[in-house]
């Protein structure tokens, strides 16, 4: 009997002590903040313009940011977030995808010199501006792949970055790190892109890369003035009013290509 009594009394006493401390010293809880934070994707990609998910969540709570700035958040979580914050769900911009606008892999592009140094694009551009012939081409040393929070970028063995559209969430981290500025963010609805970023003259381009856009205007003639722009020797797709995917066949340089490989869904719709 005595041991039971002792344990009970001890338990009650300690519980009382805890209760008292909590009563007098407890810190206010932050339920909404925790809930908002739990909805964040946690990739800390910085695509929202804030320093990581936590920072964005704090900005949301302070009312300084709007839901929808985060591209990596799933639609379901976004809806929850809007409900939580008590704001009407705004029309969120169309999902984006990043595209490496360069076709200059080792089979097509010329290297001007052997680069000896740190294997990273950011380092390579510091040495004579990078050893790849075309100064607008992808260096293929993988700064973007290392920075991608979603593992969507593959560095091909022939030294060019390839973004897998189904993994990319359009956070834009690769866009800001790329020293050659060859990665562009485009709406997912755009079916084709010009895989070349060099505004150089025809002769100079051909000297360095056999897959460069030569500004032949065939695509523009085939699709119309407003769907494809030609700027000097470089064609670019009008992302607001893009041409459809069949246009790729007219490009003689094969640098106008589709972004997404035909997905299962698209294949199904074709079958129907």
């Amino acid at each position: 009997m005595y041991p039971v009594l002792l344990l009970t009394i001890l338990g009650v006493l300690l519980a009382l002590a805890i209760g008292l401390v909590v009563r007098y010293f407890d810190a206010p809880e932050d339920a909404q903040g925790d809930a908002v934070r739990s909805l964040m994707p946690g990739a800390n990609c910085g695509g929202c313009g804030f320093a990581g998910c936590n920072d964005y969540a704090s900005a949301l709570l302070r009312g300084e940011a709007k839901p929808g700035a985060c591209h990596a958040m799933s639609a379901e979580n976004l809806e929850k977030l809007c409900r939580l914050l008590g704001v009407a769900q705004e029309a969120v911009g169309e999902p984006l995808v990043a595209v490496v606008c360069c076709s200059g892999d080792d089979n097509h592009a010329v290297h001007r010199a052997f680069y000896n140094g740190v294997n990273d694009c950011l380092n390579a551009v510091l040495v004579a501006g990078g050893a790849k012939g075309c100064s607008y081409g992808c260096l293929g040393l993988g700064s973007c792949a290392r920075v991608c929070p979603f593992g969507a970028i593959e560095i091909r063995p022939d030294h060019i970055a390839k973004i897998h559209p189904n993994l990319c969430r359009g956070c834009g981290k690769c866009v800001s790190i790329c020293p050659r500025k060859v990665i562009k963010l485009v709406p997912r609805s755009v079916p084709v892109m010009v895989y070349c970023s060099s505004p150089n003259k025809f002769a100079m381009k051909k000297q360095f890369c056999s897959a460069a856009c030569i500004g032949c205007r065939k695509c523009q003639k085939a699709s119309g003035e407003d769907k494809i722009f030609i700027n000097g020797f470089l064609a670019s797709v009008n992302t607001e009013d893009p041409p459809d995917a069949s246009i790729v066949e007219v490009c003689p340089a094969k640098c106008l290509r589709t972004i997404c490989p035909p997905t299962a869904e698209a294949a199904e719709s074709v079958q129907k």
Binding site: A113, G117, V127
Partner: peptide, 8 residues
């Protein structure tokens, strides 16, 4: 000039 090395 085709076999040059560039480095820092």
């Amino acid at each position: 000039m085709t076999h040059l090395v560039v480095s820092s």
